[in-house]
Computed example of a mutant assay.
Amino acid sequence: MTNPTSPKLLLPALDTASNAGNSAETLAQDGYKAVGRYYSQHSWKQLTRAEASELFAADLNIFVVYEDSNDAPSYFSSEIGIQQALRALYQADAVIHQPRQTGIYFAVDYDASSYDYTHYIRPYLRAINDVFASFGYPYHVGVYGNGLVCSCAKDDGLANLTWLSQSTGYYDYQEYKQSGDWNILQGPYVTIAGTQYDQDTLNLNRGSYGGFGSFAAPSCSK
């Protein structure tokens, strides 16, 4: 039986809110295999096609997370889920031309409790899934968050992909990390070529982590 976190199937990656295109060759030479970037209503941290082209040219894959603020219960509701899902689909398809059946993670960027999950985050994720379903699920829904959020969203069928945040003191961090059920594990900060990144581990023991290494023609239409 394969170990749930077999070292042979773990790959190094990074994520950042900054443009990583200019450092793509350096990142690849340092042994990283993929870079996590953002979809958002905030233009300063959005992935662009030009940046994606530079990352692909260096043989780096990309994985994406949607986040505006997403760091308190007040940022999660069905209405916000609908808005963010539509914006994520537009940026993925019309702007980046992200290939179908790859992933889009949605951030829960704080230590959400069980109460928060039940009353705020679950309705938010249900709304995202409803929007994605209305378009034929062009992309897999993922969630970024603490162990509790990742585990509950997966158990509820609201996330196919999970990205465990680096905050080791958050709810159920150790339990979820040790389960090996995560697709991406976030680690400590590192600075490369003047840009701050979070280090990540891609867990190919769980299959695809939702990344992509090329563009696709726009095709998301209702």
Rank of each mutant, 00 (worst) to 15 (best):
D93C: 07
T191P: 05
Y115H: 07
N183S: 12
P12E: 15
G31L: 08
A92S: 15
R37K: 14
Q174K: 11
Q84R: 15
H42W: 13
A17S: 07
S114L: 15
W44I: 03
D130R: 04
L164P: 11
Y120Q: 08
A153Q: 07
N203P: 14
L125G: 09
T26N: 15
G211R: 02
N70T: 09
N22W: 04
I62C: 02
N3S: 10
Y139M: 01
V149P: 13
V35E: 02
S221E: 12
R100H: 03
L47Y: 03
G147N: 07
F135Q: 09
L164K: 01
W163S: 02
T26W: 14
C152N: 07
N160S: 14
H42R: 13
V108E: 10
V141S: 00
L161T: 13
A153D: 00
A85W: 04
T201I: 08
Y139N: 02
G21A: 01
S114W: 14
Q196C: 08
A58M: 02
I104Y: 05
A133P: 08
A153L: 02
L9D: 05
S134Y: 04
I128W: 05
F135G: 07
F56K: 12
V35S: 02
F76D: 07
A112D: 10
S6E: 06
R87G: 14
A85S: 13
Q199D: 06
Q101F: 04
N146F: 14
K8Y: 14
A58H: 14
N61W: 10
L47T: 14
A216S: 10
W182D: 01
Y90E: 11
E79F: 09
W163N: 00
Y75Q: 14
T201H: 06
I104V: 13
N129F: 06
P123T: 07
E175S: 12
I80W: 05
Y115L: 09
S134W: 00
K222Y: 05
S23C: 12
D111S: 15
D198T: 10
P218F: 00
R37M: 02
S113R: 08
D116S: 09
D59Q: 04
N183L: 03
P138R: 00
Q41S: 03
A17E: 10
T162K: 07
D111L: 14
A85K: 07
Y110N: 06
Q41G: 09
T191E: 12
G207T: 08
Y66S: 01
E67S: 10
T162R: 09
S53W: 05
Q166C: 04
K33M: 12
S165F: 06
N129R: 04
S167C: 08
K45V: 11
T26K: 15
G147H: 08
A57I: 06
G157Y: 05
